[in-house]
Each structure stands twice: as structure tokens, then as C-alpha cells.
């Protein structure tokens, strides 16, 4: 009770962070349903790493050309987004054979980030906070970025939902009926890239990847229709983000790990329920 009171009393401290976490979790958990169904679960991991490499590259270029003024720095957010979009286009081109491409992209961007980080003049702590976010201290610009990414995902997916479904489920038949499958593949990957880049910088790489996979996997174990899968995944994401935040406050746990841990526990519970249901049949 005391923890609850102090948690609520300090609302002004964590308000922005929890808003960002909930929006990011909802967006990624929704997109996760597509990611899991398309069997490309490594894509969000690779995209978050590619966008991290974009941030490091931005700082590296700044140092290389001796650009001390912030105005002349290639903006880390845009660089991260630009590289993530390039990678998304490449993954979409690979289609369902994208596993190798995502692993290669992950490794190359990890190596590039590590190597370039050694040449960065800025305080490494600053770079890391931009790279991975803290999920605790959130700037207003991150609320705007995550909110804008969520709005973009919502609009694109409402408009193109049926095309996305047909093109993902049965690309050959969709293509034969005149639907430009590759265009819609790219569009899905672009929305994932935008959401992952914004979320990685706001809540960190681990929670971003966790929310892009675990709630959707749990939801697909429980749901019997596509709409139910989207709703359940989004609810799981929102609840795990908010509850994870609360638990991290009262139990003094790392915030990102608490949120992903809850999502993982939800997935395990859904698997047990799924197995029990199967054994009862």
C-alpha cells in the first residue's frame, strides 16, 4: 500500500516514461502479430540494431568532419530511421527467405556500431542513452516520435489491412488476383522499421524487441480470429508495460527487464493453456 501511495505520489516523475512505454508496447505488440505470422521474428532485432548503428554512425560522422555544432550533426534519429528503412526494404525483397539477411544485417550493424563507437568523441554514456534509452527518463521529443510512429502505423494498417492479410497469407494467389504483393510487403516492413526505431530510442532495444515478439506469440496461442489476435496482443503489451513499470518501481528492478519479463511470463502461461487445451481434446 505504501509503495502504491509513493508510486502515485511520484506520478510527475514517471508520467512521460510510462506514456511512452505504453504507446510503444501497444504499437509493437500489434505489429508483432504480423511479424510472428510472417515468421520473421529476427527482423525487429536486426532493425533495432541497424537503427542503433545509424545513431553511432551519426556521431562518428560528426567527429570525422569535426562538427561540434549540434546543428551540423547528421541527426541521429533521422540517420537511425534512414538505415532502418533501407534494411526494411531489403528484408521485404527477401520475403520469407529473409532469415539469413536479417542475421547478416544484425551482425554487420553490431560490428559497425562497436567499431565506430571507439572513434566517437562524445561521452559514451550520452551515446548509450541515445542508443538504448533508459525507459525511465524520457524527453518530450521521444513522446512525439513514438506517438507519431504509432499514428502512422495505425493509419497505414487500417487502410491496407485486407491487402496486408491477403499478401502475407497467400502471396501467390494475391499476386495472381492483381494485388502488388511486394509493395505491401515493403509497406509492412516500413511500419515495423519506423516503430522499432522510435521505440528503441525511447524504451531501449530489449523491451522493443520483446514487445515485438512475446505478446503476439502469446496472443496467437489464445486467439481464434485475426481481430482477436490483434486486440489480445495489444492488451498484453499495454498491461505488461504499465505493470512492469509499477513492479520495477516497487521492487527496484530494471524497468526494461521487468516489462519484458512479464511479457515472457504471459507467453509461458499462454503456452501452458494451449498445451492443456490440446491434451483435453
Amino acid at each position: 500500500m505504501n509503495e502504491s501511495v509513493s508510486f502515485l505520489d511520484s506520478w510527475f516523475v514517471w508520467r512521460d516514461a510510462i506514456i511512452v512505454a505504453v504507446i510503444a508496447a501497444a504499437t509493437l505488440s500489434y505489429l508483432g502479430v504480423w511479424i510472428v505470422l510472417k515468421r520473421v521474428v529476427y527482423v525487429p532485432l536486426a532493425l533495432s540494431q541497424v537503427s542503433s548503428a545509424g545513431v553511432v554512425l551519426s556521431f562518428f560522422l560528426c567527429g570525422l568532419f569535426d562538427m561540434h555544432e549540434t546543428a551540423s550533426l547528421p541527426d541521429p534519429t533521422w540517420m537511425a530511421l534512414f538505415l532502418a528503412l533501407l534494411a526494411a526494404g531489403y528484408f521485404a525483397r527477401q520475403g520469407q527467405e529473409s532469415n539469413n539477411a536479417t542475421v547478416v544485417a544484425y551482425l554487420i550493424s553490431s560490428v559497425a556500431a562497436l567499431l565506430l563507437a571507439g572513434f566517437i568523441r562524445q561521452d559514451l554514456h550520452d551515446v548509450q542513452s541515445i542508443l538504448f534509452g533508459s525507459a525511465v527518463l524520457v524527453e518530450t521529443v521521444q513522446i512525439v516520435n513514438v506517438g507519431a510512429a504509432a499514428a502512422l502505423v495505425a493509419v497505414v494498417h487500417i487502410v491496407f489491412y485486407r491487402r496486408f492479410l491477403f499478401a502475407s497469407y497467400d502471396p501467390d494467389t494475391a499476386g495472381a488476383s492483381g494485388i502488388p504483393v511486394y509493395r505491401y510487403e515493403v509497406l509492412i516492413y516500413v511500419t515495423v522499421a519506423v516503430a522499432i526505431s522510435a521505440a528503441t530510442r525511447a524504451i531501449g532495444a530489449l523491451p522493443a524487441f520483446g514487445f515485438a515478439v512475446l505478446p503476439a506469440m502469446a496472443a496467437l496461442r489464445l486467439a481464434r480470429s485475426m481481430s482477436a489476435a490483434f486486440v489480445v496482443a495489444t492488451l498484453i503489451g499495454v498491461v505488461c508495460a504499465a505493470l512492469g513499470y509499477y513492479l520495477s518501481f516497487v521492487l527496484e528492478l530494471p524497468t526494461g527487464a521487468a516489462m519484458v519479463g512479464l511479457a515472457g511470463a504471459t507467453y509461458l502461461a499462454s503456452t501452458v493453456r494451449h498445451l492443456r487445451r490440446g491434451s483435453l481434446r
Binding site: 510472428v36 505470422l37 515468421r39 485486407r162 491487402r163 492479410l165 491477403f166 497469407y169 497467400d170 501467390d172 494467389t173 494475391a174 495472381a176 488476383s177 492483381g178 494485388i179 496467437l220 486467439a223 481464434r224 480470429s225 485475426m226 482477436a228 489476435a229
Partner: peptide, 26 residues
């Protein structure tokens, strides 16, 4: 187009009606 039915993923939570309705999506 009627593909080989093995080409379709079994993970999608779709009913027979949902699948048949896709024919109108184009």
C-alpha cells in the same frame, strides 16, 4: 488461382469463411 494447399501457413487464425472471402479482396 488455387495454390497447393501445403503452401499456406497454419498459424493464421482464420476460418474457412475468412479464407474464402479473400477472393473478393482483389
Amino acid at each position: 488461382y488455387v495454390p497447393q494447399r501445403y503452401a499456406l501457413s497454419s498459424q493464421y487464425p482464420l476460418t474457412a469463411f475468412d479464407v474464402a472471402l479473400m477472393g473478393r479482396y482483389g
